[in-house]
Simulated assay, not measured.
Amino acid sequence: MKLQVKIIDPRLKNWGFPRYGSGAAAGMDLFACIPDVLKLKPAAPPQLISSGIALNISDECVFALVVPRSGLAHSEGLVLGNSVGVIDPDYRGACMISAWNRNPPGGRSILIRPGDRIAQMIFLPFIRPEYEVTDEFSSDQGRGDQGFGSSGVGPDE
């Protein structure tokens, strides 16, 4: 699959976009394309930050996910305000990052500098099934409507 990427923010050329953290990394790092340092206060509303790119995903059965960088999320509390961002294959606008400081009120603020790698983007195929509305399912897979802990938590459950 060929992916057309439009560079909206010219600083990305100097920052080395696109970039993967390793040879086997699934996620492409996204940079904070902001004019100045941004201070995210704990538990404040999320801020939309441009990634500086737009995409032309040529395959209508592929989409992109914007997800947190695991180290920043775990150690700093920098997550996405929408948990996961979805970039549909027909969207051509700027890819945005909803950055949120999940630290509790009174906790530590997060400083984001222009060019910081704050999120990552992965590409996945998806299926759009045809729907058949029914009153009863045609087969039973054994579990039925049991959920939320019904399979237990221990190794012998």
Rank of each mutant, 00 (worst) to 15 (best):
residue 53 I to P: 03
residue 67 V to A: 07
residue 122 I to N: 02
residue 15 W to V: 05
residue 154 G to Y: 13
residue 4 Q to F: 11
residue 73 A to N: 02
residue 3 L to E: 04
residue 70 S to V: 02
residue 143 R to P: 08
residue 42 P to K: 06
residue 141 Q to M: 15
residue 88 D to A: 01
residue 31 F to Y: 11
residue 71 G to P: 02
residue 115 G to V: 04
residue 104 P to K: 05
residue 83 S to N: 08
residue 120 Q to H: 09
residue 50 S to G: 11
residue 65 L to S: 05
residue 70 S to A: 03
residue 1 M to A: 10
residue 25 A to C: 09
residue 72 L to G: 01
residue 58 S to N: 13
residue 48 L to R: 09
residue 157 E to S: 14
residue 43 A to R: 11
residue 130 E to I: 13
residue 57 I to G: 00
residue 112 I to S: 04
residue 14 N to Y: 00
residue 126 F to V: 03
residue 140 D to A: 15
residue 57 I to F: 05
residue 9 D to W: 04
residue 41 K to S: 12
residue 17 F to M: 10
residue 125 P to F: 02
residue 41 K to C: 05
residue 142 G to I: 15
residue 29 D to Y: 07
residue 75 S to D: 08
residue 116 D to I: 08
residue 126 F to P: 01
residue 96 M to S: 09
residue 106 G to F: 09
residue 123 F to K: 11
residue 47 Q to D: 06
residue 52 G to H: 01
residue 91 Y to M: 05
residue 62 V to R: 03
residue 66 V to T: 00
residue 107 G to P: 02
residue 86 V to F: 00
residue 108 R to A: 15
residue 138 S to F: 12
residue 137 F to S: 04
residue 115 G to H: 07
residue 30 L to Y: 05
residue 84 V to R: 00
residue 105 P to G: 08
residue 73 A to T: 01
residue 67 V to E: 07
residue 41 K to E: 07
residue 38 L to D: 04
residue 35 P to H: 04
residue 154 G to V: 14
residue 81 G to E: 00
residue 65 L to V: 00
residue 4 Q to A: 12
residue 82 N to I: 10
residue 102 R to E: 10
residue 74 H to I: 15
residue 10 P to T: 02
residue 83 S to R: 12
residue 42 P to L: 10
residue 36 D to V: 04
residue 13 K to E: 13
residue 51 S to R: 01
residue 130 E to D: 14
residue 118 I to M: 09
residue 6 K to I: 12
residue 47 Q to I: 13
